[in-house]
């Protein structure tokens, strides 16, 4: 019964989504004049195109996140052999984490974690 109900829910949700995407554009009037489509700047008007290349300032944080994400990947096989290897495995993993933490401390000291 449960799989059938789940499938029905998926079909219903899809149907509603399809109908909504068909109906919404007709329900919301789209014949707006050019001044009605202008973005709100407190009464001002845009001069340049909105395509603008800006500095992704969180890139250092993103790289740090990736480093620790990959560390988690290494932890899966380590967890499998942890019981066999015992304390030795724990020490090896601690050494690995210490090396990564040193990296964080260095990035912190260099100001890489400041937002702007």
């Amino acid at each position: 019964m449960a799989p059938f109900a789940a499938a029905l829910a998926v079909v219903l949700a899809t149907g509603v989504a399809v109908l909504a995407t068909r109906w919404l554009p007709t329900a919301v009037p789209s014949e707006l004049t050019a001044p009605e489509r202008v973005p709100f700047l407190g009464g001002g008007l845009p001069e340049v195109h909105a395509w603008s290349r800006y500095h992704v300032r969180y890139y250092a944080m993103a790289l740090l996140f990736l480093a620790f994400d990959m560390e988690m990947v290494f932890m899966y096989p380590w967890a499998v052999v942890f019981v066999e290897e015992g304390v030795l495995a724990l020490i090896e993993m601690l050494m690995f984490i210490v090396i990564l933490v040193l990296g964080i401390l260095y990035a912190w000291r260099e100001g890489a974690l400041r937002w702007a």
Partner: peptide
């Protein structure tokens, strides 16, 4: 940019009816 990059600079005129101001 202070980081030594050449990046787009968006000129904007905000106001005179911008509510926070």
């Amino acid at each position: 940019d202070p980081d030594g990059l050449e990046l787009d600079q968006l000129p904007l005129h905000i106001g005179p009816l911008f509510p926070p101001f």
